[in-house]
Amino acid sequence: MAAVSHRKATDDPLWAKVLVVGTVMAFLALVLILPLIAVFAEALRKGLGVALEAIQNTDALAAIKLTLITAAISVPFNAAFGLCAAWAIAKHEFPGKPLLITLIDLPFSVSPVVAGLIYVLIFGLQGWFGEYLVDNDIKIIFAVPGIVLATVFVTFPFVARELIPLMQEQGTSEEEAAVSMGAGGLYTFWRVTAPNVRWGLMYGVLLCNARAMGEFGAVSVVSGHIRGLTNTMPLHVEILYNEYDFVGAFAVAALLCLLAVVTLVLKTAVEAAQPGMRGRSGH
């Protein structure tokens, strides 16, 4: 009973706090911060002018354009699907619900390379529809549609998995109230359900977009790496890097880093606006 301590039972001693925070900082610096700095440092190695030139040549601009197109198609598509799926799952009762949720999450567990492979097996030359596509002169694999499909696959669950728990928490009472007052289904959705989940939707879209613009493995399999035609930004980074054009590779990479930083800033802002979003795990 003699020991004198001023520390509460749930508090750690100062040395432990310093040790833990110090270790965490050192580890994160080594694993996360240093790579981020390295990208910008390598990009600017020969000066800002060279870096800017590297992202302004025709191939780089084509890659940026393709990346934007891919995201512009796959993100709205998955956002719409996510809303539909979350609505169907949260507001209705049916057998096999847990299975459906697991299946929607499935693309997260599949290697991106396998995600690309499946579309090659279906639409490739030797694939299910290979002959039909050749006969009708439709290109999916080694063309933009394949890149979009593969991107849709790997980003499929992002919006749905944010919205499902959110909508389930909110239950159906507000919708029932709206319907009981004579509101139609679509009206109820836009006026009651959608405003309640707008932060979750933004959160999902943010993560979905980051992955859509940054996807590498799946897109790499279906793209064919045709410069100026089927190269997205991450693929362009790879080509330049493998050609030992490091400044060029890192200049385009720096652009993608900025995208990541903007994503993280917006994500932090969404969390600040909606504290409940915090700590939800995205992918």
């Binding site: 009973m1 003699a2 020991a3 004198v4 301590s5 001023h6 520390r7 509460k8």
Partner: peptide
């Protein structure tokens, strides 16, 4: 001993335990 007072004393059998930890009490 789950909170510590800003002023004053807590005595157990006349012994001062004001700042003794919960585990020691």
């Amino acid at each position: 001993g789950l909170e510590f007072p800003d002023a004053g004393q807590v005595l157990f059998d006349g012994q001062d335990v004001t700042f003794a930890s919960a585990a020691d009490r």
